[in-house]
Design a binder for these strands. Structure first.
Lengths: 177, 177
DNA sequence: ACAGATGTAAAACGATCGTTTTACATCTGT
DNA sequence: ACAGATGTAAAACGATCGTTTTACATCTGT
């Protein structure tokens, strides 16, 4: 594993487990097993590191939700939650910790959420046809169900995705009928 | 307004707007217009202040969701979001910023979420009858829809509650039918 | 009237923060 | 072969952190 990958991997874990602001550059350099000089050469500064971690996670996440049906989408997200843990959406956490006031981070978060929304819209379009009148509403509802599962899973466990999945199926069935 | 109230009010605003860790005790004393000695006498330490803010918000929140129908619940939450802003759930944000590793805060957050869940369950019980077989599932689905709206509203605005409301109504109608 | 509670302003505490610098070693491509 | 890139270890930067202390003033209930 090259140094950049090692840095991003260990940083993502620390940020996710302890929070962004609560994780010090010292902890980050130790976890990445590199000198602070090297870390700064790769990441620029702490906000740059946060942004790089989020961009890498965005890449991985979009890969995971690159499926063809809403059923597969919920399955993929539930198993992701089961293996990676349920600590909430890392993007919204970064946004919240910085009050949305760090432009590079806010921008990365918003771009991620736009891509997330677009992916759901795309799946629904192939599932219901491009001119289903409920497309927009259903897209936002599925989005909300996923955001909600991600949040609720923090205190109710990854099974929250199952309840959300059933809700999504019911809403879609009703739209098709 | 007495000092404790002033402290909790201004602290809640700062925490919500800029994040918990990103808000310094110096900013908090200035916003509360009191000396740090007085702040510490009232709050103990920073974690104590965070906990006190959350407990006060819990009180206010439970008051707001003290309604008799799911319709009223969504109406109340949407207008709360419209007036107070959409920065996500302050409880989950506090939990996330501390990695769930600050016991006093984690405990306060979990107690709040349990009360929140119980309130939804109570409303649904009066709406569907105590022995409706879908009570548990529906309760978690409504919970997820609300958590999801709260999160999604950060980047899609408070109208997210409308989409969630419609989803909730559809799920309930289907359960009654 | 006066003791105890409650407050202020300001300095100081040691610790830690993010970041840079210094001095040096080792890889790597031509 | 050797220049430039890439790395380490450790000290140091000034700034800021949460918290406590000092010295003093004013309110409040008996």
């Amino acid at each position: 594993m090259n140094m950049k990958t090692k840095l991003l991997t260990s940083a993502e874990q620390l940020f996710d487990q302890h929070g962004f602001m609560a994780t010090s550059m010292d902890q980050l350099t130790k976890a990445a097993e590199m000198s602070s000089r090297t870390l700064y050469k790769h990441a620029g500064d702490k906000n740059g590191l946060i942004q790089a971690v989020l961009m890498e996670r965005d890449r991985r996440f979009l890969q995971i939700i690159d499926v063809k049906s809403i059923d597969d989408l919920f399955e993929a997200l539930q198993s992701w939650a089961e293996t990676e843990g349920t600590r909430g959406c890392l993007f919204l956490r970064a946004y919240g910790e910085t009050g949305g006031e760090t432009p590079e981070i806010a921008k990365t978060v918003m771009a991620h959420k736009a891509a997330f929304h677009a992916q759901i819209a795309g799946i629904l379009k192939t599932e219901l046809g491009a001119n289903d009148p409920n497309l927009e509403l259903l897209t936002e509802q599925i989005l909300i169900l996923i955001e909600g599962s991600t949040a609720a899973a923090i205190y109710r466990g990854a099974e929250a995705f199952k309840s959300a999945h059933k809700a999504a199926s019911a809403l879609i069935a009703q739209a098709i009928k």
